[in-house]
Design a binder for these strands. Structure first.
Lengths: 231, 231
DNA sequence: TCAAAAGTGTTCCTACTACACCCATGC
DNA sequence: GCATGGGTGTAGTAGGAACACTTTTGA
């Protein structure tokens, strides 16, 4: 097709916002950019669309390249398109958000990349508009998590009630009463109590729970009101 | 910059999903495509990014071109990127959703385009992946409308309670009890009752209301539970 | 025995649900 | 005077919010 066109053609990037939860803190995974210019600036893990890839496919590839992980919960968040967002060349970036269980990740990390987890509250200055991307992803996560039980993606298979509560408190930037929280969560019928206890964070130990795969008609509006005020 | 690159460059389209509400029905505005091939297929109103436009700017321009309207509520919904979504050329499309007051629109319509409102339930076969775009936009609208009072964008400045209720019922595909509905809505402190009545749809007439601009701390969770079951 | 975190129950009150009748008007 | 759609009130109940003490155990 001839191109006497006023329409622009642009590189298409995907940037992956990768959330994790560790030591009671919500974290994001950042890498140090290898390309010049802007070498060594912290940024989201990203890449460009290749060949016949869709953005979804591209994002999965990029995520796998860094973390070695497949089949991760991933969702398109927003597309960034200011003409000079990347000063070197026009690039449109489609941002994805994924939630990973940090413990799975550690073992498979690709060490070609200098990757580091940052507390969400202590993110350094970032490349281009990546800070804005994190803000967008975080807001998205709040809304999503208020409606659906996705935060479990951030936890290991077994987890304790205090852990989940910490996670919700981090995500919603709020504090919940533990009696009300556990009552509501258990009322959702999503969890199965195990016999085992986690003694790593207290002497008494906290019971492990896991997602009950049987449950198909859970009551999740249960967490909605809880979270509503921070949306 | 030299391009021995495996990375693709692509045209960037914006497609505008335009919602309206008329005769108690939720509608979308579609146009007949003028370009060949696929001439005369129904599609969303769209365009390509030009020059230094961001996608937001481009979408506003496209919307204005068709409807003549400025300053309309518009929001980015999702980006579509399958490599063959447009069989003629690789095009990434960023979809926007906007809510317009049909009555304002009618007077300003650009008649270069063959545009028509379709009931949301009676959308014809559409170009490319535009049907999927409508689905995505509609789901987005539900979620958004459950959390924020945006549906008023679809109504004229003055509207009646029965009208709003119809609108909510259309959007959420649910029926609400009118006593409960009006109680909740009025409790939100969003509305100001006018002295005037709309007699167009009943003999008794229904009072007009309008948004009360004074209200800055409204209670909108009020509509959340109402809508929750259909999210 | 003490410190630290886990676990649990009750009361109050708000707010949701369900439901039915009267009102105003044009014809 | 009747048909049509608009407007309103109540009783029962479920569930949210606020609140404090006991339990377990390792050091």
């Amino acid at each position: 097709m001839p191109e006497p066109s006023k329409y622009i053609k642009s590189l298409i990037a995907v940037d992956c916002l990768i959330f994790g939860f560790e030591n009671q803190m919500l974290k994001v995974l950042l890498i140090k950019r290898k390309l010049k210019p802007y070498q060594n600036e912290w940024s989201l893990m990203g890449g460009f669309l290749e060949g016949e890839e869709s953005a979804d496919e591209s994002a999965s590839r990029v995520l796998k390249e860094l973390t070695g992980l497949d089949g991760i919960f991933m969702e398109q968040i927003k597309t960034f398109s200011k003409h000079n967002r990347d000063p070197t060349e026009r690039v449109i970036s489609i941002v994805y958000s994924s939630l990973i269980d940090i413990s799975k990740f550690e073992t498979q990390l690709n060490h070609e990349y200098e990757a580091r987890w940052f507390k969400i509250t202590e993110v350094p200055d970032l490349l281009f508009d990546h800070a804005e991307m994190i803000t967008a992803g975080r807001n998205h996560l709040k809304k999503k998590a208020a409606l659906q039980p996705i935060l479990f993606e951030l936890l290991a298979e077994k987890f304790t009630l205090p852990q989940i509560q910490q996670l919700y408190e981090e995500v919603f930037e709020a504090n919940f009463d533990k009696r009300n929280f556990s009552r509501k969560l258990l009322a959702s019928k999503l969890l199965k109590k195990l016999d085992e206890k986690d003694k790593s964070s207290s002497k008494k130990g906290a019971y492990y729970y896991q997602l009950d795969k049987q449950t198909n008609h859970y009551n999740f509006n249960i967490l909605l009101n809880l979270a509503y005020s921070s949306l």
